[in-house]
């Protein structure tokens, strides 16, 4: 394919692959544990960190990492309290993160044009050093999921029994939210803060319809993620569309098709 001759295209495909691995694995937990809303909150607070990076003049990706980690810890504490107002608190943290970002950006000196790439992604222009960063985060995610696969599964399936079995349920819940935070950081470059939640949940949601185990669900979600990012990338190149949004639309189309096919099989 001629488009592969471009360096930026090869980088973009590589980023798509790395992103798909992270969100296929962690998105599976997000979907089965039904923590989509918490994950949305974590991803949006990243904007505060990006703004801080601009304001103080360091890499906004580091700012995003810092903010998502802090918000993951915060959400983890909220999750632990069994109060009925959980979702309200999460919604407030979500908005505060965004608001901080907006204020920091406004205060920042100089040019902030590529801000849009954090909000809506720009998989075609990810710098090499960020690719390396994403690769490291990916390895960390894979290693942690490999190590704690059974523990995460038990806590996700039946938290109470996991607790009775002597597992530190709080530890695994917070660890998982930290992985969500890292996954969000990995994904920001590709699809942007606003669209993260769609790519995090659509591939596992489809995979869940066709899987009989968490491992299979993760594997299928990773493959679907790769298909969606690659196809989205190609279409955005072909029709000169924004890459992040195109990837999401491709994924959403895939989701609808998967649901229709499933329905057809069952009737």
């Amino acid at each position: 394919m001629e488009i592969l001759q471009f360096d930026f295209m090869r980088n973009a495909l590589l980023v798509g692959l790395l992103v798909s691995v992270a969100c296929g694995m962690i998105g599976t937990y997000v979907v089965v544990k039904r923590i989509v809303f918490i994950s949305g909150g974590i991803s949006h607070t990243a904007y505060g960190g990006i703004g801080l990076g601009y304001y103080l003049g360091f890499n906004p990706m580091l700012g995003a990492t810092l903010f998502t980690i802090v918000s993951a810890l915060g959400m983890g504490l909220v999750q632990q309290r069994s109060s009925q107002r959980q979702d309200t608190v999460i919604g407030v943290m979500w908005a505060v993160g965004m608001a901080l970002g907006i204020v920091f950006v406004k205060l920042s000196p100089g040019y902030t044009a590529d801000l849009m790439s954090y909000l809506f992604g720009s998989i075609l222009t990810v710098p090499e050093r960020d690719i390396l960063f994403i690769l490291l985060l990916d390895l960390l995610i894979i290693a942690t999921v490999y190590r704690y696969f059974e523990e995460f599964k038990a806590v996700a399936f039946d938290e109470e029994f996991a607790r009775v079995s002597g597992l530190k349920v709080e530890f695994y819940n917070i660890l998982l939210l930290l992985l969500v935070a890292l996954t969000v950081v990995v994904m920001i470059r590709a699809v942007g803060i606003i669209l993260v939640i769609a790519l995090l949940t659509i591939p596992p949601a489809i995979a869940g319809e066709y899987s009989r185990g968490l491992k299979g669900m993760m594997g299928l979600a990773v493959v679907l993620g790769i298909i969606f990012t690659t196809a989205g990338l190609y279409l955005s190149y072909l029709f000169d569309l924004p890459s992040g949004a195109t990837i999401i639309l491709v994924a959403a189309t895939g989701y609808i098709l998967a649901l229709l096919i499933k329905k057809k099989i069952h009737t």
């Binding site: 190590r147 599964k153 038990a154 399936f157 029994f161 002597g166 899987s211 185990g213 968490l214």
Partner: peptide, 23 residues
């Protein structure tokens, strides 16, 4: 959650979590 992808055997073996040695 009825849609949770987990088999009967996986549920039962999860009782061994506290005793399990390796990964």
């Amino acid at each position: 959650d009825r849609s949770f992808p987990i088999s009967v055997e996986e549920v039962v073996v999860s009782a061994r979590l506290a005793r399990k040695q390796g990964i």
